[in-house]
């Protein structure tokens, strides 16, 4: 009897300890995720210039949808949206399929040692920061000393050095540097998925006389379609976020017309310009569109392929 009570007591005590541990995580989310979420109320207020979030949330006057209206009619609005969405669509069209193609090519290499070495080298840039990688690229693209201009002139593509800092080269620079930094690492997940495919499928196909392209098309690609769909939906929901650090390193005063995106716009007007309410509204606009895109991507894919994100 005595033993029984003490055991029950012990179990309750342990459950309370668990509760305490989980509560610490909960507390963290309250502070760093939910208070900011309630901070969204700022988007509907005139809280520009306040420093204390509670003060701004409670004491600033209501502004209705003024902040949203201000963003939609801002002279930079069209530009910022075009850059944000344009860059992302390009990324989706080029940088999304590239790692898949790279994974398929890697998979066709039979020499295991060579294959491993290529992967080791190709993954390296992923571990460099955008500052370092971007810094190196900027050096390569330099007008006077860069090797890219020298090569272009030598090969006769251009007559005189190109200034890659100009606005019209910005999107191209972003896409190509994204590829260079991310293609190897991005392919790993697909290589892993491919190596999980049942080898008897390939054997059966070989008996039927399938060549490597037929095997690729009818076995490899369908087998990794689930992974592809998942990452595609996640990329779509990021349609309004560009990698801030990536953009920031390549942005300069003369390419702003092509390089200002929502994230950099919010940073400049919010953190530097102290327009907290206005930029909260811009951020909320972004979150809502992203949320809608994620959900619609999820349900469309569920209907079409039976697979979703969650």
């Amino acid at each position: 009897m005595v033993a029984g009570t003490s055991k029950a007591y012990k179990i309750t005590k342990n459950r309370l300890q668990l509760l305490l541990m989980a509560s610490l995580g909960f507390l963290f989310l309250i502070v760093f995720a939910y208070i900011p979420m309630f901070g969204i109320v700022l988007a509907f207020k005139q809280g520009d210039g306040y420093l204390n979030i509670l003060d701004a949330m409670v004491n600033s006057p209501w502004a209705g949808l003024d902040n949203f209206r201000a963003f939609l009619t801002d002279r930079d609005f069209l530009n910022v949206m075009r850059n944000t969405i344009g860059l992302n669509l390009l990324q989706l069209a080029i940088n999304f399929p590239a790692p898949i193609i790279f994974a398929l090519l890697i998979n066709e290499i039979r020499a295991k040692g060579f294959r491993r070495r290529v992967q080791t080298v190709a993954n390296f840039p992923h571990f460099l920061s955008w500052v370092i990688f971007g810094g190196i690229i900027l050096m390569l693209l330099n007008m006077d000393t860069g090797v890219v201009n020298a090569a272009l002139i030598r090969l006769g593509f251009v007559d005189e050095a190109v200034n890659f800092g100009e606005a019209r080269y910005f999107w191209g620079t972003i896409i190509i540097t994204s590829l260079m930094k991310g293609i190897g690492w991005g392919s790993l997940i697909y290589v892993a998925a491919i190596s999980g495919i049942d080898p008897t499928l390939y054997e059966a196909a070989e008996i039927d006389g399938a060549n490597r392209f037929q095997k690729m098309r009818h076995i490899t690609i369908p087998s990794i379609a689930g992974t592809i769909t998942l990452f595609f939906i996640l990329s779509v929901s990021n349609l309004l976020s560009n990698g801030f650090e990536h953009i920031w390193v390549f942005q300069n005063q003369i390419n702003l017309s092509r390089s200002e995106v929502i994230d950099t716009y919010v940073y400049k007007h919010g953190i530097i310009g102290l327009r907290y309410s206005y930029t909260t509204a811009v951020g909320l606009f972004k979150s809502i569109v992203a949320f809608i895109l994620l959900l619609s991507g999820h349900y469309t894919s569920k209907r079409l392929t039976g697979r979703g994100v969650f």
Binding site: G25, F26, L29, V31, F32, A33, Y34, I35, P36, M37, F38, G39, I40, L42, Y50, L51, N52, I53, L54, A56, D263, V266, Y267, G270, I271, Y276, T279, T280, G283, L284, K286, S287, F291, L294
Partner: peptide, 21 residues
């Protein structure tokens, strides 16, 4: 409560104000 934070957030500015607060 945890899962929801993966899909929706307050954005940079409210987060910045919390850091300040």
């Amino acid at each position: 409560v945890s899962i929801f934070t993966m899909f929706f957030g307050g954005g940079l500015i409210p987060f910045f104000l919390v850091i300040n607060m």
